[in-house]
Design a protein around this nucleic acid. Structure first.
Lengths: 184, 184
DNA sequence: ACCTGAACACCGTTCAAGT
DNA sequence: ACCTGAACACCGTTCAAGT
């Protein structure tokens, strides 16, 4: 609740951990995230890392919070200007662009789907996707049974697309998902 | 090549390792597979396990080889009696049945897709799925661009469906995939 | 209230010694 | 030719001691 007074060193440490993790993920190796290494790079003890981020997923989610927020916030404007399924298509293409550069964003999406991350903004991605789907259902463009979790699970396929095949495969996969959402 | 003379103790050990792994996977815990535990249960040294199965995936693939073979062999008869997309639907429903009981089969499928397992029967799953898709393309029921790897990646969503939601979610996901494969 | 870092636990992998 | 199992490496997690 009123987590008012956080000591400034704690805030600073948290920040440096996130920065270090971001740097580690952008590393040439291809997105490995070793927690020991992150703590060392951030200049904090492992206990401190663990205090701020109880699991690797919490850390990942924080690292990509900005990106996720942008994605989530993009939903409303898209829905205002496009038919639901078009909005979804455009949104997913934006997602692919993000994920091409920052592959970890997919891991963050998968993590955010199944855990109570984002204590402040509960399940915002879920809500955003749910909204698109609801609009689609109302317009008869989306089958009634599916929910946001279904879509997120299917999008998980993207996180297993090898880097080298990304351009060829990612768009095909999204196209299959979007078209599959239509009612028969 | 001519891997003719394999010592009988080696064969027996390999067999006991697979049996132990199978038992471990059927355990109540929910499909954990600790290699140390498998070696111990099989009564062999860890080195022996590693000699027979260089990676966890190789072991998984062997454990579910039977199931995978059955799935693969089911493709031809289905194609003979059904329209391609119907055949695919039925086949995937069979897959869901398998996976409900033996959840690890999905892991084996994912593993077999991206590695050179099954030294004897290279990529049989890939071929089988490819055949269905080719029939579908010829009949104009499947979009031309997709390949078996796309479908396998999408099916990967199933391995992340929580046990409790399996019945509700698995069929929806398969339906979305199959319908998404149709040309627009 | 928060931090540190040694220590623990776990698990995949290797390898010298055995048969 | 194959096996054993101690040993190593790696990494997530904990906790007593410190500020």
């Amino acid at each position: 609740m009123g987590s008012r007074e956080r000591r400034s060193d704690a805030v600073a440490n948290r920040d440096r951990i996130v920065q270090a993790a971001r740097a580690e993920l952008s590393g040439s190796d291809g997105g490995e995230l070793k927690l020991h290494a992150v703590a060392k790079a951030a200049g904090v003890g492992q206990g401190t890392l663990y205090r701020h981020f109880p699991t690797r997923e919490h850390l990942l989610a924080e690292v990509y919070r900005h990106e996720l927020t942008q994605l989530v916030d993009a939903v409303a404007p898209l829905l205002a200007e496009h038919a639901p399924l078009d909005a979804l298509t455009i949104w997913m293409q934006r997602l692919i662009e993000y994920a091409r550069v920052k592959r970890g964003v997919m891991a963050a999406i998968e993590a955010s789907a199944w855990q109570d991350l984002y204590a402040d903004q509960h399940h915002r991605l879920d809500d955003a996707l749910g909204t698109v789907l609801d609009h689609g259902k109302a317009a008869g463009e989306v089958r009634a049974e599916v929910d946001a979790a279904d879509v997120i699970l299917l999008l998980g396929a993207l996180s297993r697309v090898p880097e080298a095949e990304w351009d060829a495969r990612a768009h095909r996969i999204v196209a299959v998902i979007v078209d599959g959402l239509r009612p028969r």
